[in-house]
Design a protein around this nucleic acid. Structure first.
Lengths: 196, 196
DNA sequence: CCATAGTTTCAAAAAGATTTGAAACTTCCG
DNA sequence: CGGAAGTTTCAAATCTTTTTGAAACTATGG
């Protein structure tokens, strides 16, 4: 065998299971706002017993080298894939983050959070503007409209804050243990259906 | 005044606040997988003291009539906008659903849910396939790989089920009262940070 | 029934996102 | 150094989604 020890696997095609899983995850991730290929690449790495090179991924997923490179660097930026050095190999190898919960909470924290904070700011800003209008107008129609909008935007703000609370809870729970959250949620559900 | 009583407002431009809010919501909604215009249209209706016609929306948001019609019918399908009959008017008028929580839980229930169920099915299917492989192979390398993948997919499945539990909880809580959930979440957060 | 106001549809255009492939760059080794 | 192996970049091509606008359709009042 002239082949390097490291290159143990060398299969160039996915098993049907891997294909199915990477497709489902690709779709999920896309739905969820990332590129489909990010999901596919991550899945393949996640299901691989050992790290893969960019070229392995290219072959297995039929992507161009450019796409692989971009996808991997994006995945790295999100911290869901790591570079791995394999001794004696010249290429870079990549492995998936396998701590699913940690991974997700990181993404939540960086992405959803900044969106929601922007929204909260905008709503608060809008409320302030409306209050100024209420004070400075003499026209009762304008005032009435301002009142209604104030009320409605307040609702939006409450909702946004609830969302933020939810994210905070998920993220900080992730650092400890997901179990209590799960138990509560399942509890809440059955309690609700009993009451109805 | 030759103008109809109904047409009380007749302003054709948005106030800066409305503009800001509809833009923020447009972005949020887009990020969240809908069309930006759905968010913008909904926001304008939500902040309007009385129902608006398709044409009002067209002018105020600078959209083509086709776009307004499509957006409104899409919003209706999601149940976040209602048609309102105004007596003596020929046009249709539209109003936003103002029960935010109900609205969101409906969307969650229809959209996220079906995605997650598809994923759960796929994972279960994949596990079954892998089990068959484990039983029928004699090759120890194949078996080892199957074992690893079984383990990993099991993790994915657990996560997906957790997600589903979360959705179920949100949806059923929405039918009753969001408060307990909120309180728990805020509680969970501070507990977590104390423990750390 | 006709004429009119309003709404919906849908093919084509525009905008936007993703992917490609080849060139530029980097690193490592003889 | 010189060059082979590998990686990154980026403008152009492709593919998707969204928007437009005009024509078809519907409902209403005269």
């Amino acid at each position: 065998m002239a082949r390097s020890v490291k290159n143990a696997g060398d299969k160039r095609a996915l098993m049907p299971t891997e294909l199915a899983v990477s497709d489902v995850i690709g779709r999920l991730i896309e739905f969820w706002g990332f590129k489909r290929n990010m999901g596919r690449v991550w899945s393949v790495l996640y299901l691989s017993p050992d790290p893969l090179s960019a070229d392995d991924l290219r072959q297995v997923l039929q992507l161009s080298s450019g796409a692989v490179s971009m996808t991997l660097s994006e995945l790295s930026r999100w911290g869901v894939v790591r570079k791995v050095w394999i001794q004696g190999e010249r290429k870079d190898f990549y492995a998936a983050e396998v701590q699913l919960w940690r991974m997700i909470s990181r993404v939540f924290n960086e992405r959803e959070r900044s969106e929601i904070i922007a929204a909260i700011d905008a709503f608060e800003e809008a409320l302030a503007t409306i209050e100024r209008t209420k004070k400075s107008t003499t026209d009762p129609a304008v005032r009435a409209r301002a009142e209604l909008q104030h009320e409605r935007i307040t609702q939006l703000l409450k909702l946004a804050k609830l969302g933020k609370g939810l994210l905070d809870a998920l993220v900080s729970t992730a650092k400890i243990d997901a179990e209590p959250l799960v138990r509560f949620l399942l509890g809440a559900r059955s309690e609700a259906s009993h009451r109805s």
